[in-house]
Computed example of a mutant assay.
Amino acid sequence: MGQGHLVVDAPALVGQLQGWARELGLSQIGIAGIDLAQAEPGLRAWLDAGFHGGMDYMARHGLKRARPAELVPGTVSVITARVDYLPRDAGDDWREREQRRLAQPTEATVSLYARGRDYHKVLRTRLQRLAERIEQAVGPFGHRVFTDSAPVLEVELASRSGLGWRGKHTLALSRDAGSTFFLSEVFVDLALPPTPPVPAHCGACSACIDVCPTQAIVAPYRLDARRCISYLTIEHAGPIDVALRAPMGNRIYGCDDCQLVCPWNKYARRSALADFDVRDDFAAPTLLALWAWNEATFLRRTEGSAIRRIGFERWQRNLAVALGNALRAAPGADARRDIVQALRARRDAATPLVREHVDWALAQAGAALSPASAAR
């Protein structure tokens, strides 16, 4: 991974990193060591329990996630970065506004982080620029930039480097920034002094556990991804468990519930970057408006967005579930008629996966297809 023999003024370099990070729009920088042995038993138990669901790559990588020097040979330190994503124009009542949207069955809810530009691209570019600044200061050095793109224990590294602590919902939490931020890392072959961790401040609070619509947080700090709406709407490729469809409500991409109730998110920071401003299509979408998109429209409207990676089929699957839930909520007669007509209009041309969810959705209105029509 590089020469590994550079002699640098490490404390001074860390100080410079803080300034460069601010110039690049990064919210906070920390430094972690690479001995994560204490995290291995928890990781092994999580995998053994099958809580990773269909994310087979997690099992394939195994304990490599807890061994940075195995992932990138030569790694001596990890530079961690926090990037706030709350849109710049988010009002002080943003959590209340999100709760109101969740309570409107015919509206569509997309996780806040996904309403702007794809964070993978934003963070990777800025971390690479940070690495270039380091190279200008110390000369060529070995490094790899990761943004949710490799088997990295991101929250563990963030916690060890002082960016926050692990909340009971398993996300990183900060007293100064809540949890509305992305994490990213630069693995380096430079020996840098770690920044000190901060103590946890969840106390006896269990708000995130109590609010989870599908009870995916099975214990403090333990998430069963197979029940998590974020996993179900984004990572999961097949049919959604029938028992979990109703709790999904109108959430069609991700879920923010555990963050909305977290007391620390009253300190959530607005992003310094225009990249995370909300796109018009996701400012106040209705389920029917999004259901009307064909695949070409979906690809055009989600260009440069994290949403595009789930593909049109999962997008329609998620919307079908949400439309079924809207029917279960017994909207007015006009809304009920419009939803049923829209679902029926696209049923026959849908893929088998989407059709299954459309039929379930129609059944929620007592409008299940007859055997004759189902055989068409």
Results as ranks from 00 to 15, higher is better:
Leu17Met: 10
Leu24Gly: 02
Leu26Thr: 00
Gln28Ser: 04
Gly30Pro: 05
Ile34Phe: 04
Ala37Arg: 15
Trp46Val: 03
Lys64Trp: 05
Leu71Ala: 07
Gly74Arg: 01
Asp84Thr: 07
Arg95Lys: 09
Arg95Glu: 03
Leu112Gln: 03
Tyr113Cys: 14
Gln136Tyr: 01
Gly142Val: 08
Ser149Ile: 02
Ser149Tyr: 03
Ala150Ser: 14
Val155Thr: 12
Ser159Ile: 03
Arg160Val: 10
Arg160Asp: 13
Trp165Asn: 14
Arg166Thr: 13
Gly167Leu: 08
His169Met: 10
Val188Ile: 01
Val188Gln: 02
Thr195Glu: 00
Gly203Phe: 06
Cys208Asn: 01
Ile209His: 03
Ile209Gln: 12
Pro213Gln: 02
Ala216Thr: 01
Ala225Asn: 14
Arg227Phe: 02
Ile229Gly: 10
Ser230Trp: 07
Glu235Pro: 14
Asp241Val: 07
Val242Thr: 14
Pro247Glu: 00
Gln259His: 15
Val261Ser: 01
Pro263Trp: 00
Pro263Cys: 00
Trp264Lys: 06
Asp280Gln: 15
Asp280Glu: 15
Leu290Ser: 02
Ile307Cys: 11
Ile310Arg: 15
Trp315Leu: 10
Gly332Leu: 14
Ala335Tyr: 07
Leu353Gly: 14
Val354Ala: 15
His357Tyr: 01
Asp359Trp: 06
Leu362Val: 11
Ala367Gln: 14
Ser370Arg: 11
